[in-house]
Nucleic acid binder design. Structure first.
Lengths: 345, 345
DNA sequence: CTGAAAGCGCTTACAG
DNA sequence: CTGAAAGCGCTTACAG
């Protein structure tokens, strides 16, 4: 049997209450008693029982994370790992543990968080991505349960969130290509229901529009574009009468598929087509050619998300905290976009 | 305030004990009472408080996972994500949650599991990788606390573990190259302290030896070989008087670095050098050239690890369970190794 | 088949 | 500065 507060108390010749108080650093405890108790604690190898503590304090010192199903976003693998790493680091630093759960679909996700929330297992939750009409956001919001969103929510604007300025990021990426003389620039997007797809699309269009360039609908690929379809997509793109000379791509891993397709078709990057994408995957700089990518500081996103959430959990006046944190991004220019095009205008 | 067992009891006109019993599916409860109680429960939106339950049952229905620091094995990113995904899926299916913690170094890792174990937060732990003289294994083993190891341990052979037969896997990979006529085959390994590096090295040497081929020490790169050093390593390899014509590489991401180096030096794969590596990264089949890789079923490793652990936790007679599970692997042959060499013998 | 009671290991007013 | 007591929400012998 593990050693309890009672054992320590008896050994130290004090009451359990006193032991509890030195444990929580209560101010009105004499130095002498405190140090004596502490000595006994290490001597006996005492560790407080978190379950008992949680039961009475109504606080668990842990936060929940729902792992998204791979299906719809296989290619974001490293994204989630980096995010979780950031979350775990900062949470641990603040004395919190991370509880991970998962659901095979949105319904199951709601059930999973429901179990965690109502079971009293977590003090708050972080949602790893933003979808349209996310039932989990709906659920947590109605419960008024503390949570933070990586991304943003369209229905509830005031939700605590940590995000990249994806409109700006896509705008920057597109501007970069425009500055190299490209006029026909395509956009390869991700799943339509992700807010990130929407925002980056917006930034892309904005940059094109501002530069007086048109965005033909056949230059835009949306929906679940998986790496595997890179070949097909490219064979379509490249045979267009007015084919794009550059592409903005939603994620580096999608670019890998695109590059594979182009390679099979005998096209060279960046000579025949320039590419810039997002998320700065670890593999991107090793690729041939090295891939230009917008680094969005994924680890940092996770770190700040955890920080903001814990602040919200512990804070008294929630309205005081910044509701929306934007993490700066940075375009890493590499070979895949380093090619000047003559302006034909 | 959340609804408790007492509220349900009062509402249903029974005692709390009865409610508790229908909750746990106790056999000697009348159908009538049971269904009445259940109705009230959903009506009131009752959810059992896990903390209270844990406190008395001495069981948490959650298992701990320590996240390794990125530093030493950055390139294994997707490996850990897949592993965790497998663990989470199976654990959730069995009604367990996953608690994740991390440490910046081995000492901190021990402290992290210590907190989880002694705080009574977890019923068991899974260790994501195997190192030589792992203090965490030491710690858990001495405590006789249930845990499962992905990989194997050298000091304690009888530890519950789930592993790839890495000797065989490397043997297979090397044989594959030998069958294409290669005689000078190099090996690019990973961190020396990982058991996986050691095992794959052994398989490589075994295959070489069996085929009557020698393994020069300058054909072997060990230690923290990061992707970034691919260039340097390759410029060394390729200028050797008797340079290798093929390479076995510890992980696909390391191969990406190698390919980058070769590309910059103007060598072609597979024509100038054949490559086969491990872990079948999602990006590998998209690469140019597509990378031959041994698929070790990472998700499956995680799934079985979780399963074995939970079985061990719940089982009465621990000795009955298989202590060591081997997950089958499979070589995915792709372009990077598809090149015949003339035998010069 | 069901209830009253004790207890899991802690915290926290309430006294002193 | 410290202790005795009640209680967090549940489970589980022990009776009946």
């Amino acid at each position: 049997m593990a050693v309890t507060i009672k054992d320590v108390a008896k050994m130290a010749g004090v009451s359990p209450s006193t032991v509890s108080r030195v444990l929580s650093g209560h101010p009105r405890i004499s130095q002498k008693t405190a140090s004596k108790v502490r000595t006994i604690m290490t001597e006996l190898g005492y560790h407080p029982n978190m379950m008992a503590k949680s039961l009475v304090s109504k606080t668990t010192k842990s936060i929940g994370v729902i792992l998204p199903k791979p299906a719809e976003e296989l290619f974001l693998n490293t994204f989630f790992m980096e995010l979780i790493r950031g979350i775990v680091s900062q949470a641990n630093k603040s004395g919190y543990d991370i509880v991970i759960s998962s659901g095979a679909n949105e319904q199951e996700e709601v059930e999973a968080v429901g179990r965690l929330v109502h079971g009293g297992r977590i003090d708050g939750a972080v949602l790893l991505h933003s979808r349209q009409n996310d039932p989990v956001v709906e659920y947590l919001h109605n419960l008024d349960f503390p949570f933070v969103l990586v991304g943003r929510n369209e229905q509830y604007q005031d939700v605590l969130s940590v995000d990249t300025d994806n409109v700006q990021a896509a705008y920057d990426a597109t501007r970069h290509l425009i500055s190299f003389g490209h006029e026909r620039i395509g956009f390869v997007s991700g799943p339509k229901n992700l807010i990130v797809s929407k925002d980056r699309m917006k930034g892309y269009k904005k940059a094109m529009h501002e530069a007086g360039l048109s965005t033909k609908s056949e230059w835009i690929v949306e929906d679940d574009f998986l790496q595997e379809s890179g070949y097909r997509a490219m064979s379509f793109f490249m045979t267009l009468p007015e084919r794009p000379t550059a592409l903005v791509v939603i994620d580096d891993v999608v670019s890998f598929g695109v590059l594979r397709g182009l390679n099979e078709l005998g096209y060279k990057v960046p000579e025949d087509l320039c590419i810039v994408s997002f998320n700065n995957n670890a593999v991107s700089e090793l690729y041939s050619p090295p891939l230009s990518s917008v680094d969005i500081g994924i680890y940092h996103l996770g770190y700040v998300a955890s920080q903001a959430l814990i602040q919200a959990i512990q804070g008294d006046d929630k309205s005081l905290f910044c509701k929306r944190h934007i993490i700066p991004h940075r375009l890493m220019v590499r070979q895949s976009s380093m090619h000047n095009v003559m302006r034909t205008t």
